[in-house]
Design a protein around this nucleic acid. Sequence first.
RNA 1: GGGCGACUAGCUCAGUUGGAUAGAGCAUCACAUCGACACUGUGAAGGUCAUAGGUUCGAAUCCUAUGUCGCCCACCA
Length: 727
Amino acid sequence: MKEIPKAYDSVLEKNIYEKWEKSGYFSPEKVEEYLNEKNFEIKKPFVISLPPPNANGVLHLGNTCGYSFHDLLGRFYRMRGYPTLLLPGKDHAGIQTETVFVKILREKGNEKKDLGREKFYKQCYEFCINAAENARNEEKRTGLSADWNREFFTLDPKLTSTVYSTFEKMFKEKLVYRGKRIINFCTNCSTALADIDTTHEHRRGIFAYIRYPFVDKKLGKGIVVATTRPETMLGDTAVAVHPDDKRYKKFVGEKILIPIANREIPIIADRSVDMELGGGAVKVTPAHSPIDFEIGLKHNLEVLNVIDEKGLMTGPIPKKYVGMETIACSKELVKDLDEMGLLEKIEKIDHEVVICERCDTAIQPMVSYQWFVDTKPLAKKALSILEKKETEVLPRGQMKSLQNFYEQIEPWCISRQLWWGHRIPIWYKGGKKKYDESLENPEQKVETEAIFSIESPGEGYEQETDVFDTWFSSGQWPFSTLQNGKTGDFEKYYPTDVMIHGRDILFWWSARMIMLGLYRTGNTPFSKVFVTGMILAPDGSKMSKSRDNTVSPQSIIEKYGADALRLWYYTDSLAGANAPLREEKIKGNRFFVNKIWNASRFVLMNIDDKSIDEVKKYLGKNNFEGEWVKHTKEFEKEIENYVLDYKFHLAAERIREFFWHIFCDEWIEKVKKDATSENLALLVYILKRTLKTMHPFIPFITESVWQELVKLSLAEEMLIIRQKEVV
RNA sequence: GGGCGACUAGCUCAGUUGGAUAGAGCAUCACAUCGACACUGUGAAGGUCAUAGGUUCGAAUCCUAUGUCGCCCACCA
């Protein structure tokens, strides 16, 4: 057996993967066929919809972390007689991909708008399909035993038809509507964003105290309002004070003048005003502040848009300021006010700013017409599913977070002003503008309507230009893929068993999948959500391109092998805890993988040409017993229970302990002193059982060793399909 | 402001329903030196389980406060 190399080389992993792929066992039908042939019981299918990574680039450590768990479960069930389907895909990732692709175009000297919508879409589609190839290879490199014949791209026309029919149903049932609300607008990405697509950040800012004079000079010098965004004063339509505020009570109902803009606005009373803050009076700009928008609704205030979608000043304001950027305008106003003696003071403050999730640009709150999903009734049903435990979230703390999210859910803005995505299938009679105007003035009878249609409904209709929020389509992933795949897939494989992803997308994704899954199929899309921890940079900070601290899964796999990386995930990536990358640990895991290789090598090297027949004879009898066998079977049971309990970290720890410190350090050492054919056969027997137990966790090394056994006719088939019942 | 979670060895974390001397990996130290594996073996050191109370025969584990640190949600002008 001298030809067995001394160290396990993880480069071999590629060959092993090819072997699996060729076998066809990634397909549940093929597994069924096998079970049939061998007369094994065929259990109910085990199914996971794999989270589709962005098609536009490379995988990150978070993607491969999830796959390690998906694949572990998939292999575990496949080896136990469950036809197993891990359904892969790629996500079009709306804003992100559009941004990436626009940049690529620009590098080639092309502009998005010059290409035009259709060409842009087509080229971006091609770009994604090509990039997906890359991502797919990386997925394979982690050992993911997915059924590649069923892979879907989220913009595949088949999936689009499902997304459209969901929208149609919602449209008919009035669960989606076109509404005028204050939304988050990212001036850099040029699109509206849902609340959840934004994040908060501490930034330095100013707090300016500005005096608004009374219209009736007899009342006094006026009221001082404080603001972090002076430029919005041009869009003020009221000044609000607290109704119990003794200082201002008497002015409620009076008129006040916005300086510079020279507009008269009312003084109103509202309980939401904080008497302590900034002098107790607040300027109200319904068009550009969410809280002011609410106040505006309550008091029936006018909404005056003074900032446009590029972040420039606009509207009925003094000409001087039109077209200025907001910050420049703010500075100019402050200067002008100071000259007029109306600027009381400016404080420098540190405050929370809402920024775009994707590009960190400060969000411009804006009032505009968008498409919204009325999420409340959907969330209510989702909540009851959680209460009935039809879907369980692990760990429990995440379950509470999800409940909390559903309880406080707000309407979901699903329209995005992009080209890359599913174009919203709505046509406006007489044009979009006319339709929105009709919403503005419902009392006026105007000949217009918005109708659902995929194709043009005829003359005089204008097509909606917006696309859906990416999550509106990925929220339908578990059923859209199964409804549009092979005939019968949906009936056979839906609902799926478990959803596994990182903590960061629980609300974006699982929350939406549960709501939309229930809405379209009546069933929760999965009975369990397993939330993994977040992979962080070694120093505990987030990995991000801007910080230049990203580590690619590929670089880790090249260095240590996929098995070593997987083992690390099982122990360190537990939800609740973050997982700063620890290369030393992954390295330690590689040592373990090598240990398995060498232990096996030792056993095989001791079986020479003379003894091999005897060993086979003992194996054939298959009547091993004693302490070691008993212990091995207990170990198998333990691992099985840990997996069923989702205690992967305990399983991984136990595997190492058993194989290294019991099998190697004790048992092999003993056999060394008494290497009879019978004892060697016993070791082979235990090794085979143990390889099977370990396979779902570390598929490559275990299959590699198994194939060495096959070469000597000490084992058969492939470990990937080898059933639990047979050794 | 609301929610969730964490605090255990130098570091990253385990520790199931409360039960004997609190564990692992990595790092450290000593010894062994190529005989499956130096990607090794044997052994050692290392902890008032954040703090203070309480429940209990018994608490890292349950309860109550306190502190520190994360994360998420939220309209503080």
